Structure formats: C-alpha cells, structure tokens
Simulated assay, not measured.
Amino acid sequence: MTGASTELPGKGGLTRRRILDAAAAEIARHGPAGASLGAIAAAADLQTGSIYFHFASKQRLVEAVLEEGISASLRRLDEAMALPRGDTPADRLRAGVHAHLRALAELSDYAVVVLAPQFAARQPPGFRALRREYLRRWTELIADAQADGTLASGPEPGEVRDLLLGALNAAGLAGQDPARTADAVFALLRLPPC
C-alpha cells in the first residue's frame, strides 16, 4: 500500500492517514461499491466503528481518498516546479512529466482510485476543484512549451495535455519504469536534451 504524504498532526492525524491509505488500497482493488469498511478497518488496525470517528460515512471516506490522491499529485507538481531545473518551458515540462510519473509510482493505490472511470460522472466538489487546478497547471505547461516552439503549436494545449497525461497514466498504471517512460516521452516530444 502506498500512502500519500500529507502531514496530519498528532495521533488522530496518524490514524486518519492509516484509514486513508487502507481505504485507497481497498477501493483500488474492489471499487467503491465493493470496498468493505471492515477490511479497511482491519488494514488500518482499527475497529470498524473507529472509522466513523474520522469520516461521517463510507461515501465521505471515498471522497476523502479522491481528494487526497489529487492533492498529493498537485503537491508533487508544485514541488517539481519550485526546483531549480532551469526556467525554460522545456525544463518545466520535463519536471512536470517526472512529477506526474513519481506520483503514479508513489501513490499507486490513490492513482487507481483517482483515475477510475466510475468517478468521471460524479466527482465530489472538493475533488473536482483540485482536479481542475491540476489540469489548469498542465495546460499552462503545454501552452508555454508551444509558445516558445518546444512543442508544435497546432493542437490545442488541452488536447495535448490530455494525450500526454493519458500516455503517462497508462504507462504508470501498467507498472512501467518511470525513468524509461520519461525518456520515451521526451524522445517522442523531441524535447531538447537537458
């Protein structure tokens, strides 16, 4: 089980983290309908009723897993953009690709839940806002790379973003090596060497 890295204060925060990590693993394996609160509690080393101290309902727990998965990915993207890798759009795009692949690898259970098709139609508002922000930042990365000639300027930035993230998600969820996937993407995009 791979956990998201939000630091939650105190014992209650650690318990909440265990519940979220256990829920992400259970939902990734069985989907939201098939996920068992008993199995989540057992994996978190708790009694089933203890979950309700932290989450009002199973639905709220599923929503919290979705929100944590996307916010952890957003944090990784923010961290990558803050690193001194250079200031060119190509450098920023490379950093974004590495951050996305790292999130898929490190947050594998959360990634499976966040990317699950059954959530496409009914996303909780908190998740929807975070997802919009994540996609906005990627659109900006693509648009900047197109504006300076790093990427072809013909397709709309949102279309390029969706194609790129789709390829990264497919490779990441298939367990492909993140470094090799990044190298392949950079070659495909004809990004100049670092």
Rank of each mutant, 00 (worst) to 15 (best):
A23S: 08
A23M: 09
A25R: 13
E26D: 12
E26P: 01
I27P: 04
I27A: 10
A28E: 06
A28Y: 08
H30S: 13
G31W: 11
G31R: 09
G31K: 06
A33I: 14
A33M: 13
G34L: 09
A35I: 05
S36P: 13
L37K: 03
G38D: 03
A39L: 02
A39R: 08
A39I: 00
I40K: 02
I40P: 03
I40L: 06
A42E: 14
A42G: 10
A44K: 03
D45M: 13
D45L: 12
D45Q: 15
D45A: 15
Q47T: 07
Q47D: 11
Q47P: 00
Q47L: 02
Q47M: 02
T48F: 08
T48R: 15
G49M: 13
G49S: 14
G49H: 13
G49D: 14
S50V: 03
I51A: 08
I51R: 08
Y52C: 08
F53K: 03
F53H: 11
H54K: 02
H54F: 12
F55I: 12
A56P: 12
Q59V: 11
Q59I: 05
R60C: 04
R60N: 10
L61I: 05
L61Q: 06
V62Q: 04
E63V: 01
E63L: 01
E63Y: 06
A64C: 04
A64F: 01
A64I: 01
V65Y: 07
V65F: 08
V65Q: 05
L66T: 04
E67I: 04
E67V: 10
E68I: 05
G69C: 01
G69M: 01
I70L: 01
I70M: 01
I70S: 00
S71M: 07
A72Q: 05
A72V: 03
A72P: 01
A72G: 07
A72K: 00
S73K: 02
L74D: 00
R75N: 08
R75G: 07
R75W: 08
R75D: 12
R76Q: 10
R76H: 07
L77E: 12
E79M: 07
E79G: 06
E79D: 13
E79L: 12
A82E: 13
A82I: 05
L83A: 15
P84I: 02
P84G: 11
P84R: 14
R85G: 13
R85V: 15
R85E: 14
G86A: 11
G86V: 11
D87V: 14
T88N: 03
T88I: 04
P89T: 01
P89A: 13
P89H: 00
A90E: 04
D91Q: 15
D91L: 12
D91R: 15
D91H: 15
R94K: 11
R94N: 05
R94V: 11
G96F: 05
V97R: 06
V97M: 14
V97L: 14
A99F: 09
A99K: 09
A99M: 11
A99P: 10
H100W: 07
H100R: 06
H100I: 01
R102N: 14
R102L: 14
R102W: 13
A103D: 09
A105W: 09
A105Q: 14
E106A: 04
S108V: 12
Y110H: 13
Y110D: 05
A111K: 06
V113T: 05
V113A: 03
V114I: 03
V114L: 06
P117D: 01
F119S: 02
A121W: 00
A121D: 04
R122G: 09
Q123G: 03
P124C: 14
P124G: 13
P125M: 09
G126Q: 08
